[in-house]
Amino acid sequence: MRIRSQFVRRSAAVVAGLALAGSAAALGSLQASAAPSSVQAVQAAATVAAAPTISIKADRATAKAWSKVSFTGKTTGIAASTKVQVQRLENGKWVTFPATTKVTSKATYSVWVQSGRVGVNKFRVVTSKAASSAVSITIVK
């Protein structure tokens, strides 16, 4: 009888061990199937976080006609050597201004303009992926 009870206990232990192993395997497969979507969620969040941006800052708010006004800025999500184009707001439309530069390896840019158009001039910089906000420069005679 003692042999039989040991056999029953050992058999029960083996069955319990197999059950635990089976549930662990099932849990592992659930985690494995969940892992790709977790990775995809992180990648999607990184993509959203890395939306291309470009900033603009003018070295002055007022300038004499035809004097140089420098614009500088920083970029995110825009590759080095990407073309940066200056635009001016004319009659409600952004018009390409004859001033370009390229994004540096430090994700910055620097460009200057000259304008003879007296009054408030609004400028921005654009790349193929992003546009900055506008800055106002008052040009005086």
Results as ranks from 00 to 15, higher is better:
residue 32 A to W: 10
residue 82 T to A: 14
residue 80 A to C: 09
residue 76 T to L: 06
residue 82 T to G: 07
residue 29 S to P: 00
residue 108 T to E: 12
residue 112 W to F: 15
residue 73 G to S: 06
residue 77 G to F: 02
residue 43 Q to L: 14
residue 36 P to E: 04
residue 137 I to D: 01
residue 18 L to A: 02
residue 46 A to Q: 05
residue 122 K to R: 14
residue 4 R to E: 15
residue 97 F to P: 00
residue 7 F to D: 04
residue 40 Q to V: 09
residue 107 A to V: 02
residue 136 S to D: 15
residue 32 A to Y: 06
residue 138 T to A: 14
residue 2 R to Q: 14
residue 116 G to I: 06
residue 130 A to S: 12
residue 33 S to E: 12
residue 34 A to T: 06
residue 114 Q to P: 02
residue 50 A to L: 09
residue 94 W to Q: 01
residue 58 A to W: 02
residue 4 R to P: 00
residue 32 A to V: 04
residue 135 V to T: 06
residue 10 R to A: 15
residue 114 Q to I: 03
residue 141 K to E: 07
residue 51 A to H: 11
residue 49 A to S: 13
residue 9 R to E: 15
residue 72 T to P: 03
residue 90 E to K: 13
residue 132 S to I: 10
residue 125 V to R: 01
residue 111 V to C: 03
residue 76 T to V: 05
residue 107 A to M: 04
residue 69 V to Y: 01
residue 61 A to H: 12
residue 112 W to A: 15
residue 22 G to P: 00
residue 9 R to T: 13
residue 131 A to D: 01
residue 31 Q to V: 07
residue 29 S to Y: 11
residue 117 R to N: 12
residue 27 L to I: 09
residue 9 R to M: 11
residue 126 V to I: 09
residue 25 A to C: 02
residue 136 S to H: 11
residue 123 F to M: 09
residue 135 V to R: 13
residue 60 R to P: 00
residue 18 L to D: 13
residue 60 R to S: 11
residue 15 V to C: 05
residue 102 K to A: 15
residue 136 S to I: 00
residue 82 T to Q: 11
residue 100 T to A: 07
residue 119 G to S: 10
residue 38 S to D: 10
residue 22 G to M: 06
residue 53 T to V: 09
residue 44 A to C: 02
residue 59 D to M: 04
residue 129 K to F: 11
residue 126 V to C: 05
residue 100 T to P: 00
residue 97 F to Q: 00
residue 72 T to I: 08
residue 128 S to T: 13
residue 112 W to D: 12
residue 76 T to S: 14
residue 70 S to T: 15
residue 14 V to P: 02
residue 136 S to T: 14
residue 85 Q to I: 01
residue 84 V to F: 07
residue 129 K to A: 15
residue 134 A to Q: 12
residue 92 G to Y: 08
residue 118 V to R: 08
residue 2 R to N: 14
residue 131 A to Y: 03
residue 121 N to T: 07
residue 18 L to Y: 12
